[in-house]
């Protein structure tokens, strides 16, 4: 069975709210979860802003979809990789990010180095960028 599983990586490179990419990507990840593939989600470049703590889009009458990342482990998405380099470029650290607890209370939000991200990307069957 496992050999039929594909490794799918979703790469988020856009900030939330200003454009619809971030929200659309999340919809695709949620819808794709029914196929029970091996899924990881990566936050790269401005995509790291999507995981920023303390968002309050209600002031602009928009939905706070940063809450939805918290549901991803239940959808069997166990890794939300954050490109460390992109964080540094934006003056952010892990403390600026939301936490996404898995069932065992570990955090699905995982900082990753360029080297590790590069090899992880290379191992995928499918990479989709938003």
């Amino acid at each position: 069975m496992d050999s039929l599983k594909k490794r799918i990586m979703y790469v988020n490179r856009r900030a939330p709210y200003g454009t619809v990419y971030a929200l659309e990507a999340l919809d695709v990840v949620l819808a794709g979860a029914v196929f029970e593939q091996e899924v990881s989600v990566v936050f790269l470049d401005d995509g790291v802003y999507q995981l920023r703590r303390g968002q309050n889009p209600a002031v602009l009458n928009m939905k706070d979809f940063s809450k939805t990342f918290g549901a991803l482990p239940d959808f069997d998405v166990m890794y939300l990789y954050v490109d460390e380099e992109s964080l540094v470029q934006r003056g952010m650290t892990a403390r600026d990010l939301i936490e996404v607890p898995r069932e065992d209370d570990t955090d699905a939000v995982t900082l990753i180095s360029s080297t590790d991200l590069s090899s992880l990307m290379d191992q995928q069957d499918v990479v989709l960028q938003f």
Binding site: P16, R52, R53, Q55, N56, P57, V59, L60
Partner: peptide, 10 residues
């Protein structure tokens, strides 16, 4: 300011 608050920027 509302655009800061929306994005969680202090």
């Amino acid at each position: 300011e509302p655009d800061l608050e929306c994005r969680g920027l202090d």
